[in-house]
C-alpha cells in the first residue's frame, strides 16, 4: 500500500510582529519534515520569518450551516463598536 504521508496545515508569519496566516498544506511523516517541506514549498521568495505546522486532522472547522448560529448574534450588538456612542460637541478623541 503506497502512502503519501500525513497532511499538515502550514501557517506563515511574513515578518516579526505579524499574525501567522494559513498558506496551504504539505504532506510529511513528522513535524520536522513538515517544517522542511513547508519551507521549500511556501517560502522560496522570502515570504516568511516563521512557520507553524499542525496535523490537518486536528483542525476543527465550522460549517456553512453553523454560520448563522455562530455569527448572527453579533449583528444586533452595535454597542460594541465605538461609533455607537455620541461624542459631546467639542470633545477631543483619545
Amino acid at each position: 500500500m503506497d502512502t503519501q504521508l500525513d497532511l499538515w496545515e502550514v501557517f506563515i508569519q511574513s515578518k516579526t510582529g505579524n499574525h501567522h496566516v494559513h498558506a496551504g498544506s504539505v504532506h510529511a511523516s513528522d513535524s520536522n519534515m513538515a517544517l522542511q517541506n513547508a519551507r521549500d514549498i511556501y517560502t522560496r521568495r522570502n515570504e516568511g520569518s516563521s512557520i507553524w505546522v499542525i496535523p490537518s486532522k486536528y483542525v476543527t472547522a465550522s460549517t456553512a450551516e453553523d454560520a448563522a448560529m455562530l455569527f448572527d448574534p453579533a449583528n444586533d450588538k452595535i454597542y460594541r463598536h465605538p461609533t455607537f456612542y455620541v461624542m459631546p460637541e467639542g470633545a477631543k478623541q483619545i
Binding site: 503506497d2 502512502t3 503519501q4 510529511a28 511523516s29 513528522d30 519534515m33
Partner: peptide, 12 residues
C-alpha cells in the same frame, strides 16, 4: 516514504 513513515512511528 516507507522509511519516513517507519521512523515517525518509532519516534512517537
Amino acid at each position: 516514504r516507507e522509511a519516513a513513515a517507519a521512523y515517525a512511528k518509532q519516534q512517537s
